[in-house]
Amino acid sequence: MTMTRVEMRKLTAAVPQEEGDFYELVLEHSDQLYSIAYSYLRSRHDALEAVQEATCRAWIKRNTLKHPQAFKSWLIRILIYVCIDEQRRRKRTVPAAGDPMAEAGACDNTARLEMLWVLDQVKPKYRHVLLLKYYHDMTLSEIAETFGKPEGTIKTWQHKGLKQLRAIMKDRREWYEY
């Protein structure tokens, strides 16, 4: 993943220690971060909170970033973990009476976003690859960098994820036709 000129200027030695530079770097990627968070959490409020939490964790862990040029993929990985944590938390939470089960409008799009719903049934590591590739236009190389895996592994996960998806869609069609 190539860095922009701005990123290179700010990450001259290692991780940007200055808060101002760090803030600007995160902000540069914030639109994509928000978009990825939304695809996981399907709530604008939760997606904003995920971006906030990811920024917080990234700041705390800034010294763990080994390769400054991998800042963006490192940040996306942190965000994905935040989203996974939130998804797990949601599973443990019992909604109170009167709580909306989902953000207004999201449920109405079940038919239009059928694939996204079906993706929830795909094995998690395959799901991440499919989500980032097809919903966020990331290349396999970028995804590999995000997860710290060889590109060959990511290709395999993409292939297996698509196979699982196809099998699930076939089952759904058969069920509907029954």
């Binding site: 808060e19 760090f22 803030y23 995160v26 902000l27 914030s30 639109d31 928000y34 978009s35 939304y38 695809s39 604008r44 997606a47 904003l48 909170e49 971006v51 906030q52 939490e53 990811a54 920024t55 917080c56 990234a58 700041w59 409008g105 999201a106 799009n109 239009r112 976003l113 059928e114 694939m115 996204l116 097809y134 919903y135 966020h136 236009d137």
Partner: peptide, 26 residues
């Protein structure tokens, strides 16, 4: 569907909410 998703996520509400989220995260 990715296009639909982008439209659905839409604007982040009031302008600057995303910037505020990053600030508060720091």
């Amino acid at each position: 569907e990715s296009e639909i998703l982008k439209r659905e996520s839409g604007e982040t509400g009031e302008p600057g909410q995303l910037r505020l989220a990053v600030m508060q995260g720091l």
